[in-house]
Simulated scan of single mutants.
Amino acid sequence: MKRPRYQFGSLYMESRRNGPDVWVYRWRETNQQGSRQLRKQILGTVKELRNQADAFRAAETFRLSINRQAVEHAGPPPTLRKLIEHYRLKELPMDHHEGKRRSTKMGYISNLDNHIVPRWGDYLPSRVTTIEVEEWLKSLVLAPASRAKVRNVLSMIFRHGMRWGWLDKNPVTMVRVSSKRLRRPDVLTAEEFRSLLEALPQRERLLGTICATTGLRIGEVLGLKWEDINFTTHMADVLRSYSDGAVGPCKTEISEQPVPLDEIVLEGLQGWRQVSGYPEASDWVFASDHHFGKTPLWPDSPRTKILQPIARRVGITKRIGWHTFRRTYSSLLASTGNDVKVVQELMRHSKISTTMEVYAQAGMEQKRVAQRRAVDVLLGRKPRIATIEGAEL
């Protein structure tokens, strides 16, 4: 019996007489008579899939589906490229919601397509060595944390081959790569935050306020619906996250915990609901006008076109993004004398070690106050009243 042939298919844009252009994926399929015939599938409009990269990601499910038989009958993969194809088929199908989050899968696919396959795709798995991988990772023009992620994905490919009984070792296990940050992430001072907030439009001001007063990630804020907001108990249920154009679960199980809402946030939400255009209980709090409210707002556009330019205009030279507000919140929680367990609960960190990293980045003035208290006790010195940003301690 002839072994099925692997095919990548083709992607192109097709014009429509009535309506926007569409992205089309095309491949060949063997019919019952044994002859090959051309098949095609519309992936979405150019409004839904804004560029070729979006269209390629949408086509991934179809490509894996039409090649399922070819991959299943291929036997032990002769090259790393074939092993990766099998891994993607088994571990990364976009039409399965269990297992890894969609954003995680997209990150794996990006590392595979942009780094691993171009360098190692034609290698025999048995020819890949620890030292060669280590030297290659050092040559990548990436941040240390990004290199570590590439290393981890490559290691998963080899572990996948071992689980299927095709490989007997993983050369990436012994690869050394540092994930230490090159620079500390920026946080805003209270003065910088207030000056930025005053200059932002209503929608972006509310987005920033929610992130900076609840610690929610931007995807979790965009995943909120009006029915998740309880204006009586001053709480918000965090049930989902919006990332990479898809709604899915939150980052961790502990992330799906209710968060308290300050009065200023509730006032902002009530004002926004009156003008947002999508005030129904089942509507997204931050709905996308481009998709007529059917999807949440895409976060990149307001970040690059509104948030960052306005930050520069008010004199903030730090690197600003939506996550800056979450970091600012965690920094303030750590620097205002809160119990570490309380901070962990408010930040919804799954590990206490993550919270402790926040405390390790305490401000210099906080360090001086702590040092002074210890020295006062050590030397029997009368304690002095110290302040952090004007607050007596």
Rank of each mutant, 00 (worst) to 15 (best):
Arg5Gln: 11
Arg5Ala: 14
Val24Asn: 08
Arg26Thr: 14
Trp27Asn: 00
Glu29Tyr: 07
Thr30Glu: 15
Gly34Phe: 04
Ser35Ala: 10
Gly44Cys: 11
Lys47Ile: 13
Lys47Asp: 14
Leu49Pro: 06
Leu49Asp: 03
Arg57Tyr: 01
Arg57Ala: 03
Ala58Arg: 06
Ala59Cys: 08
Leu64Gly: 11
Ile66Thr: 03
Val71Pro: 01
Glu72Phe: 08
Glu72Lys: 13
His73Arg: 15
Pro77Thr: 09
Pro78Cys: 05
Leu80Tyr: 03
Arg81Pro: 05
Arg81Met: 02
Leu83Thr: 00
Arg88Leu: 06
Leu89Asn: 08
Leu92Ser: 08
His96Leu: 15
Glu98Leu: 09
Lys100Gln: 09
Arg102Phe: 15
Met106Tyr: 01
Tyr108Val: 08
Asn111Ala: 08
Ile116Cys: 01
Val117Cys: 01
Val117Pro: 00
Pro118Asn: 02
Asp122Gln: 03
Asp122Phe: 00
Leu124Asn: 13
Trp136Gln: 05
Lys138Phe: 11
Leu140Trp: 00
Ala143Ser: 15
Ala145Tyr: 09
Asn152Ile: 13
Ile157His: 02
Arg159Tyr: 02
Trp164Ile: 01
Trp166Gln: 02
Leu167Arg: 07
Thr173Gly: 02
Arg176Cys: 02
Ala190Asn: 04
Glu191Val: 09
Glu198Ser: 05
Ala199Val: 04
Cys211Ile: 03
Leu216Ala: 03
Leu222Val: 10
Lys225Asn: 05
Glu227Thr: 12
Asp228Phe: 06
Thr233Asp: 15
His234Ala: 15
Val238Ile: 14
Val238Phe: 06
Ser241Ala: 09
Ser243Arg: 02
Gly245Asn: 07
Lys251Ser: 02
Ser255Arg: 04
Pro258Leu: 12
Val259Gly: 04
Asp262Tyr: 07
Asp262Ala: 14
Glu263Val: 12
Ile264Gln: 11
Leu266Val: 15
Leu269Gly: 05
Gln270Trp: 10
Gln270Thr: 09
Val275His: 11
Tyr278Gln: 07
Tyr278Val: 08
Glu280Gln: 13
Phe286Gln: 11
Phe292Asp: 15
Gly293Ala: 06
Leu297Tyr: 06
Ile306Arg: 14
Arg312Cys: 04
Gly315Asp: 11
Arg319His: 13
His323Glu: 13
Phe325Trp: 12
Tyr329Ile: 09
Ser331Trp: 05
Leu332Val: 06
Ala334His: 00
Val340Ile: 15
Val343Asn: 04
Arg348Gly: 14
His349Trp: 14
Ser350Glu: 14
Ser353Ala: 15
Thr354Asp: 08
Thr355Gly: 05
Met356Tyr: 13
Ala360Pro: 00
Gly363Asn: 07
Gln366Ala: 08
Gln366Cys: 11
Ala370Arg: 03
Gln371Trp: 13
Arg372Val: 04
Arg373Lys: 10
Asp376Pro: 02
Arg381Pro: 02
Lys382Phe: 01
Ile385Asp: 14
